[in-house]
Amino acid sequence: MSIQHFRVALIPFFAAFCLPVFAHPETLVKVKDAEDQLGARVGYIELDLNSGKILESFRPEERFPMMSTFKVLLCGAVLSRVDAGQEQLGRRIHYSQNDLVEYSPVTEKHLTDGMTVRELCSAAITMSDNTAANLLLTTIGGPKELTAFLHNMGDHVTRLDRWEPELNEAIPNDERDTTMPAAMATTLRKLLTGELLTLASRQQLIDWMEADKVAGPLLRSALPAGWFIADKSGAGERGSRGIIAALGPDGKPSRIVVIYTTGSQATMDERNRQIAEIGASLIKHW
Rank of each mutant, 00 (worst) to 15 (best):
H24S: 11
P25W: 12
V29C: 13
V29H: 13
K30F: 04
V31C: 05
A34M: 12
D36N: 14
D36P: 13
Q37K: 06
L38K: 09
L38P: 06
G39P: 06
G39F: 09
G39M: 10
G39V: 11
R41H: 15
G43T: 02
I45M: 08
L47S: 10
L47C: 14
L47F: 14
L47Q: 11
D48Y: 03
N50E: 06
S51N: 08
S51K: 03
G52K: 07
G52S: 11
I54P: 14
S57L: 11
F58N: 11
F58E: 05
F58T: 07
R59G: 13
R59K: 11
R59P: 01
P60C: 09
E62F: 03
R63A: 06
R63N: 14
F64Y: 13
F64T: 02
P65F: 03
M67L: 14
F70H: 09
L73C: 12
L74T: 10
L74P: 01
L74I: 14
C75A: 06
G76D: 01
A77N: 06
A77V: 07
V78G: 02
V82D: 06
V82R: 07
V82L: 08
A84H: 15
G85A: 10
Q86V: 11
E87R: 03
G90A: 09
R91M: 05
R92F: 10
H94R: 06
H94T: 05
D99K: 05
L100G: 07
V101Y: 08
E102I: 09
Y103A: 08
Y103F: 06
Y103K: 03
S104H: 03
P105W: 10
E108G: 13
K109D: 09
K109R: 12
K109C: 13
L111N: 13
L111Y: 13
T112D: 08
T112M: 11
T112R: 12
D113P: 04
D113A: 04
V117S: 03
V117W: 02
E119T: 12
S122Y: 08
A123E: 06
A124C: 13
A124S: 07
T126E: 10
S128A: 01
D129T: 01
D129Q: 00
T131D: 02
A132Q: 02
A133P: 03
A133Y: 01
L137A: 08
L137M: 03
T139W: 12
T139Y: 09
G141F: 09
G141Y: 15
G142N: 11
P143R: 04
P143V: 07
E145L: 08
T147V: 04
T147N: 04
A148K: 09
L150N: 07
L150E: 02
H151V: 04
G154F: 09
D155T: 02
D155H: 01
L160P: 10
D161A: 06
R162T: 10
R162E: 13
E164I: 01
P165S: 07
P165T: 09
E166T: 11
L167R: 00
N168T: 07
N168Q: 06
N168W: 02
N168G: 06
E169T: 08
E169Q: 09
A170Q: 14
I171Y: 15
P172D: 05
P172E: 07
P172Y: 12
P172L: 11
N173W: 12
D174E: 07
R176V: 13
R176H: 06
D177K: 00
T178E: 02
T179N: 00
M180L: 12
P181I: 15
A182F: 14
A182Q: 14
A183P: 08
M184W: 00
M184P: 00
M184S: 03
T186A: 13
T187S: 10
T187D: 15
R189E: 09
K190N: 08
L191G: 02
L191E: 03
T193A: 14
T193Y: 11
G194F: 11
G194T: 09
G194K: 15
L196A: 07
L196D: 12
L196F: 12
L196R: 13
L199H: 08
A200W: 10
A200N: 15
S201P: 11
S201Q: 15
R202P: 02
Q203H: 03
Q204M: 08
Q204E: 06
L205D: 00
L205K: 00
I206H: 04
D207A: 06
W208I: 04
M209K: 01
M209F: 03
A211T: 14
A211K: 15
D212A: 10
A215R: 15
P217H: 12
P217S: 09
L218Y: 03
P224Q: 05
G226E: 05
G226F: 13
W227M: 03
F228M: 12
I229P: 00
A230P: 00
A230Q: 01
D231W: 03
K232T: 00
S233A: 06
S233Q: 01
G234I: 00
G234A: 10
A235G: 07
A235T: 05
A235K: 02
A235E: 03
G236M: 02
G236P: 00
R238A: 12
G242T: 02
G242E: 00
I243P: 00
I244V: 12
I244L: 12
D250M: 05
K252C: 09
P253A: 04
S254G: 07
R255W: 01
I256K: 01
V257Q: 00
V257Y: 13
V258D: 02
V258F: 02
T262V: 06
G263V: 07
G263H: 05
S264K: 05
Q265C: 10
Q265N: 08
A266S: 07
A266M: 13
M268R: 12
D269E: 12
R271F: 14
R271S: 08
R271N: 07
R273C: 08
R273V: 05
Q274P: 07
Q274D: 09
A276Y: 07
A276F: 09
E277M: 10
E277L: 13
I278N: 02
G279E: 03
A280N: 09
S281M: 12
S281T: 08
S281Y: 15
L282A: 12
I283P: 03
K284I: 15
K284E: 09
